[in-house]
Design a protein around this nucleic acid. Structure first.
Lengths: 149, 149
DNA sequence: GTGCCTGCAAAAAATTTGCAACACG
DNA sequence: CGTGTTGCAAATTTTTTGCAGGCAC
């Protein structure tokens, strides 16, 4: 098992590589955001990300977080989730997976694919809708809320 | 075929009934919003709804639209859609269906269920997530955008 | 009648934009 | 070095809230 420090450095390098592969400059904010997202399982909002990065990057600004998330999403490095009337949330893993959202508390959980058969894109829906990807959203009651917490 | 007027009156009555069944008062704004949503295929935002209702309901306020949508969603009469970093959008049909969102232009389309087998809730996912409903989101390129419009 | 709802205005929150300084490649 | 990015602040947009008056039941 690597030490946390080694891990962080390793994933920063990976992040930088992923950025350059996507044709983007590997700037400090981008590397920091992509690295943070690769381990942050909270599906953070822009604000949550800023908070978690501020210690190491005191000068990082919220507007930079927004523009960076926009660019990363465009290049497919992260996925923006619509949090049903809440603010934008973000998922930073490469791994294909779905999401479960708690009706009560709004918490978002990752769900491995394979629970359900899914069409393999490309596929075309009526009206000439060309399917690029399929994302399943489970509306759930999470364990904590089910318990009445 | 009924005349539009008859239709509108009929669906207003239906809307009022649905509200009362859900334990809500059938007030003018609520009936208007629910009625509008039953035919509006745009998945409108709060603002879009206000615009479309203003002619017949000049005194309707945006804050009322918001609070009403909140209540209707809580009672399951409508569904709030997360529009991926955009504003909140809403779907007002009782009919179970999924959605396709164009990556390019953000347009939202209805997709009939049945295209894909789906688990019939209730079902429990790992971590004690109790599934209440399943919603499939297709990421698509719509016909207009595919054409390069 | 009584309590839930509405509308207004104002506040709060979320996101976007303009622009000068800066840094990656 | 030049172009793409950042950070700051301010503007915009979206959503929430407080409260007095109204209306459904």
């Amino acid at each position: 098992m690597n030490q946390p420090d080694t891990d962080r450095i390793a994933s920063s390098r990976q992040a930088a590589d992923r950025l350059r592969e996507a044709g983007l400059r590997a700037t400090a904010p981008r590397v920091a955001i992509l690295t943070a997202l690769s381990t942050d399982r909270r599906h953070p909002s822009a604000e949550m990300l800023l908070e978690s990065l501020r210690p190491g990057h005191p000068s990082l600004s919220l507007s930079t977080v927004y523009t960076t998330l926009e660019v990363l999403a465009q290049r497919g490095l992260i996925r923006r989730l619509g949090a049903q009337g809440d603010r934008m949330r973000v998922d930073g893993t490469a791994r294909d997976h779905d999401h479960a959202i708690c009706r009560e508390c709004g918490a978002i959980f990752d769900v491995d694919r394979g629970v359900l058969p899914r069409p393999s894109p490309p596929v075309t829906l009526p009206d000439g809708l060309h399917v690029e990807d399929v994302h399943i959203e489970y509306e759930v009651i999470c364990a904590a809320c089910g318990r009445g917490d």
